[in-house]
Structure formats: C-alpha cells, structure tokens
C-alpha cells in the first residue's frame, strides 16, 4: 500500500516543479528563452519561483565564485526537502574554462550533492529542457535522492565548505537536527568537521525588531 502511495507522490512531484530564480552565472542567460514562449518549460509543469522556501529545484547556472557559493549554500539549506540540484554548464562539473581562476569554485558536488549535470558552454535551451525531463524521469522512478545524501554525508560536505570558507563557516540551518527529523542520520552525518562546527557555532539570536 505504501509503495502505491510513494509512486503516486513521486508522480505528482515530478509534474509540479518550481525552479529557484537565482542566476549564479552566465548560463542564466539561456533561462529566459526556456521560460518564455519559444521553448516554454511551463508545459512541463516547471515554473520559476522567487523564494527558496517554496522552490524544488536549485539550478546552479554556471560557474560559482566563492562569494556566490556561500549564498548558494545558504539558499540550498533553506530549501524544503525534497530538493533537487541541477548543475548547468561545464564550469559546475570541473571548473570549465575558469580552471585557473582563483575566484571560482571548481566542483559543485564537493559542496552539495548534485542530481544532474547539463554540460555545455552554455547548454542550449533544448538541452536544459531535456535535462529537466531527465530529472522528472528520475523523480518518478524515485532515484533523485541526492538531498538525502546531504544529510547522510553532511560531514564530508561541511568539511569541503570549511576548507574553502574558513573554519568559522556556519549557516543558520541546523542540518543535523533536520537529519534526525527525517531519520536520515548516517555514518557520515557527524564527524570531525561537525565537531568543529559545534565549537565555533554561536546560537542564533532572535532578530532585534525596531519599530
């Protein structure tokens, strides 16, 4: 019975996807054609969404500079599960043509688990659409589970983030708490890096409201 229910959920999930509207790099220039009338991704049930809390897909469009990567991490952790990450352009795979650059991060999947890459510099709108269809297929078959990897291997991802952003790096999201909530605590959830995080983390204070 529960399997039927799961299938139904996956079917529904695959047909109503919201892409977070965050242009991290140059691949974002091919998204307006994808969204608008010529290629029209809305016929697949995919639509842009402006807030991370209500978005399902994080499209990392192209190279991420280290400054952007911090914001991408914050955004990714704010998104509700299940969430899917698509890396567009060659730069998210291996640094692309900016491999010598001091300012861009090279491999996206060191910092967050990636469901799908769409390679190309930059990929054509057709490629983006075919990538989205691929993702829909994966969701329907229940294979797009990268967000679970983030909870299970949080220590690995956090370690890479700390390596790049410094030891003081922290986000307002309690990832380990969420992992416990979803029942996804694995061997890699806690480790030396999360121990370091617990040392440096200062508890969140409520924002001072001035009216």
């Amino acid at each position: 019975m529960s399997r039927v229910f799961d299938e139904l959920t996956n079917f529904a999930r695959a047909r109503s996807l919201f892409i977070l509207h965050y242009c991290t790099g140059c691949g974002a220039i091919e998204l307006p054609p994808v969204m608008t009338s010529r290629f029209d991704m809305e016929r697949l049930g995919v639509s842009p969404m402006v807030t991370p809390r209500q978005a399902d897909i994080l499209l990392v469009t192209g190279y991420v500079s280290i400054k952007t990567l911090k914001r991408v991490m914050l955004t990714y952790e704010q998104m509700g599960s299940p969430k899917y990450v698509i890396g567009i352009c060659s730069c998210t795979v291996n640094g692309g043509m900016y491999w010598q650059s001091y300012a861009t991060a090279k491999r996206l999947d060191e910092y967050m688990p990636v469901d799908l890459y769409i390679a190309g510099c930059m990929p054509r709108p057709e490629a983006v659409i075919s990538g989205l269809r691929e993702l829909m297929k994966k969701i329907e078959q229940g294979e797009a589970n990268s967000w679970k990897e983030y909870y299970r291997n949080y220590d690995y991802y956090l370690g890479n983030q700390q390596h790049l952003f410094g030891d003081q790096w922290q986000t307002p999201v309690d990832v380990i708490g969420e992992a416990e909530h979803y029942g996804l605590v694995g061997d890699g959830t806690r480790g030396e890096h999360t121990a370091l995080l617990e040392q440096v983390q200062h508890p969140l204070k409520p924002l001072e409201m001035r009216l």
């Binding site: 140059c26 500079s65 400054k67 914001r71 650059s101």
Partner: peptide, 28 residues
C-alpha cells in the same frame, strides 16, 4: 563581486589567441 572570475588575471596566463574564447564571457 558575485560574478567575479578574475578575467584580467586569467588573460595574463593564456595565449593571445586563447583569450578570444574568454572575452565574450565578460558581458553575457
């Protein structure tokens, strides 16, 4: 600085002809 790629540094590290592929990326 969110889109900083260090173009000017990259161009100093590449051949004259290679930079042709690099420059259009400056303004998308």
């Amino acid at each position: 600085g969110y889109l900083h790629r260090g173009f000017e540094k990259l161009m100093e590290q590449r051949l004259w002809i290679q930079n042709i592929a690099l420059v259009p990326r400056i303004c998308v």
